[in-house]
Design a protein around this nucleic acid. Structure first.
Ligand SMILES: [Zn+2]
Ligand SMILES: [Zn+2]
Ligand SMILES: [Zn+2]
Ligand SMILES: [Zn+2]
Lengths: 146, 146
DNA sequence: CGTTAAATAGAAACTGTTTCTATTTGCGAA
DNA sequence: TTCGCAAATAGAAACAGTTTCTATTTAACG
């Protein structure tokens, strides 16, 4: 079931354009993280003219609005993933097939305590990401794809 | 007390060159993470000719050999930090003054269990980093530096 | 519809990073 | 100590992902 992205965009004060909707649907269809260029190529099948900067801009806006999450890849390029899971969690990413799986774990409480009480500092954000191989890649030895 | 970096380099099968030693000493002097360019500028004070690619290459080799750690900055540029703490831990980084503090916390056991038992996957690496403001920046409102 | 600010295309610029090639240098062997 | 050679480096150039710019198009609202 395809969610209605219109109210989501409205809540961010972004206009409901066909390209924003298409990009969200593309991400929503995927269980893997995608690069801006991969998204662009999918967009090109839907629109006769679509610029790569537009893809970057939309991804930026949606990431800024906490709608989509960035994947920190060892190759240091940008990747994006749309997760519908509302509660706070983190991700296990497969570096071979790019699959993303929810990791229902976070130690923010413990860390907050360490930082506040131990360092007298303030936590602004935290990164927790597990890189590895998913069960399929582990058993089938599927070669990596871009 | 300046550590002897020679055996460290030897263990990585890297030749002991003045530039590698200097770079290690520069990092060892700092409690903040540095950008390749910042390191390059410090190197330029020590060598009349020193290329930025050399800095990148050395940083790469040392990072590859687990001698130095990369900082995942929100700005997506590369930063490096030399931590002498031998046991496994993570870092709290101050996004204002670039200071790095050891965070003696890691949930790798719990996460490993979740991934192996829950997902039938394999963990290759994990990222845990806390971004925030250190006590000094919190109280003194020190403006950010590059 | 008509108006207006937001969104976009396409080209061009940007910038951190990597590659390339000739030259230099560390270091084990003689 | 000197030699020989693979490793390391400088400097220039290339690269690639990302961002900026400007004219044009479009969504939203009355
Ligand atoms: Zn996989
Ligand atoms: Zn998720
Ligand atoms: Zn968390
Ligand atoms: Zn440390």
């Amino acid at each position: 079931m395809k969610p209605d992205f219109q109210p989501l965009l409205k809540s961010l004060s972004l206009k409901t354009t066909p390209k924003r909707i298409a990009l969200l649907e593309i991400l929503d269809d995927e269980k893997v993280y995608l690069s801006p260029e991969a998204i662009w190529k999918k967009m090109q099948k839907l629109f006769r003219s679509i610029g790569l900067p537009t893809v970057y801009r939309i991804l930026d806006e949606l990431h800024e609005g906490n709608i989509i999450s960035r994947v920190l890849h060892p190759d240091r390029k940008l990747y994006y993933y749309l997760c519908r899971n509302e509660e706070h969690h983190h991700h296990f990413i497969c570096v071979s097939c790019n699959k993303v799986e929810d990791l229902h774990f976070c130690a923010e409480k413990e860390i907050e305590t360490l930082v506040v009480k131990g360092m007298k500092g303030k936590v602004l954000s935290h990164i927790l990401q597990i890189n590895g191989l998913c069960s399929r890649c582990l058993t089938e030895q599927v070669p990596a794809h871009g």
